[in-house]
Amino acid sequence: MLELRLVQGSLLKKVLEAVKDLVNDANFDCSATGFSLQAMDSSHVALVALLLRSEGFEHYRCDRNISMGMNLGNMAKMLKCAGNDDIITLKADDGSDVVTFMFESPTQDKIADFEMKLMDIDSEHLGIPEAEYHAIVRMPSSEFARICKDLSSIGDTVVISVTKEGVKFSTRGDIGTANIVCRQNTTVDKPEEATVIEMNEPVSLTFALRYFNSFTKATPLSNTVTLSLSSELPVVVEYKIAEMGYIRFYLAPKIED
């Protein structure tokens, strides 16, 4: 028996909007730790890892570890039917091939339940070791989204370079080139507006921009985003989900053959 009650149901709606374009089908894993997902995009270049910790749910019952295969496009369609202020409860019986989403309005005057068929999905988990990163950049998520959108109108790839001067996003295309430098800026009114750069050594990596634009669909989940970079390792783009967990995107770099 599985029963997860999330008072801030809009979080789950935002999570689905953030991942549904990157991954079609995925297994949601439920355990005592929380509700999680790890899935790669179809080209095996990008990976999404989600964790919503059990403590973040108002009610969390998961009698045994369970993996539920879902089509994320269909799940997003169902969650779109929940109001932004609704409480969302996920329910599944042991051995069942369906999951039920229950939406309750805050005043309890409207209660809806939607039942979705589960799927058998061959899950392909990757072991991602803890790594020391050469540079970690934290910046406003809206600023990062703006940069990715602007650069993708010029070129297809972005070079992210971190030096003691700041973090530089560069692209080139048929019409020209673009460079955007963000300097460390911690003297802002609100901490979430700061750009903070922790650099152990300079790093420069090249990535396909279209994936970054997909990752920025997670912007509504967090005011800030963290980019963790190391030479010749996938970048980690992390959006913290307040008091609940995170959504992390991993993207393999392009490197010299």
Partner: peptide, 14 residues
């Protein structure tokens, strides 16, 4: 030129 690496070039399948 640069070639696109895959995640399996860096991380192992469990």
């Amino acid at each position: 030129g640069k070639i696109q690496k895959l995640l399996s070039d860096f991380y192992c399948h469990l």
